[in-house]
Design a protein around this nucleic acid. Sequence first.
DNA 1: CGCAAGATTGACCCGTCAGTCAGTCAACGC
DNA 2: GCGTTGACTGACTGACGGGTCAATCTTGCG
Lengths: 210, 210
Amino acid sequence: MPKTSSPASPGKRELQKEARRIAIIDAALEEFTAQGFTATKLDDVAERAGIGKGTIYLYFDSKESLFEEVVRRNLLGSEEMIENFISNFAGNTSELLAQHFHNMYLFTQNEKIPPLMAMVLGEGVRFPALSRFFHDEVIKPSQELMRRIIRRGVERGEFRVDAEEVYTQILIAPILLGALTKLQFGAFAPIDMADYSEKHIDCILRALKA
Amino acid sequence: MPKTSSPASPGKRELQKEARRIAIIDAALEEFTAQGFTATKLDDVAERAGIGKGTIYLYFDSKESLFEEVVRRNLLGSEEMIENFISNFAGNTSELLAQHFHNMYLFTQNEKIPPLMAMVLGEGVRFPALSRFFHDEVIKPSQELMRRIIRRGVERGEFRVDAEEVYTQILIAPILLGALTKLQFGAFAPIDMADYSEKHIDCILRALKA
DNA sequence: CGCAAGATTGACCCGTCAGTCAGTCAACGC
DNA sequence: GCGTTGACTGACTGACGGGTCAATCTTGCG
């Protein structure tokens, strides 16, 4: 079988390896999100990445660890960026909150994200390690950011004093459900996400306002 | 050829058949919710139901149609009951809404329900028919009930006039996310669902109040 | 060049199940 | 009883796909 990947890259093997690793993860993302974890065949992942199946095992221990890497690389947040955004925001907290939610909606608009979330929710139960990782690395930091914003609002007297006691899940839930609904039912029951997000943010502000 | 619908006709075999059908669905529910669709072995379903695997195929065409039956039997709502409840409610709409949400929280507290929801989310993408069914039979009716309650509130001047425009998903989302969160992360990050639901209902009422 | 080290490959191995079906068993009518 | 009918069974099959590894190719270096 002729080798095709010979062109160029006289450079380091190191670079090649890292590029290949990423190519595999990207291909796996495509397949996992399209087929789900169990239904995805590593043969297909390999084909999409333009390599042989065996090669996958040079980079990952198993299908499962590949899956974890896919989640890791694609859901791991840019928390620092958001943190800076929050710290440096000058306007009032309602605007800050609205902007932050807007950003989250943008994030979930990325077509790769909802299927990934659905997978983690749907198949996560059978991967406790992944579940834990997801909670610690994605859910918890995101909750803490939310809490910081709310605290800011309370301190400035913009939000009611017991606003901090509201579970951040309650506030965020519609974003996730919106993404999942669109994924599952969008084909026959489309949602106007712009309108949806606007109404959502409006509801939240009403619920938190002093 | 034996009697079809005449009352009090024991027809031993008939009864046996219906009982067996239900036994299979119940066993399948257990296995599906514990293992997920793909990971569930029909041998295990059969063993749990106390029958041979072949028998399953006397009652269902395939693993997939068995799955659909499981969903059908367990998520199909008691809409009429709820409808009566709403129609006959005497108090103000805030109380009605609170009560209705309370009921939904109770429903999701049933330990069988969250895994089922997670399955529909996780594997639903590969079963468009199921997705559609789920939307038409579960989501849509539930949204319509919600909308009726909100309309009642608006008509009585209890809710703001544009409350009807709020997407019912936004209001319901925290229930689903709460159930899923508890399922996925409850083991290491427990939630006080009573408190959670209370805060949730409080938020909603603030968001809708006139 | 030539060759060793390392990278890649895909045919193969092997366990796993969904689904089948020939044979067994139990109920019912007579 | 006894024969017919339908329910039930579980060993079997065929497809499938995760994971392996001996063979092959590529690269870097002397």
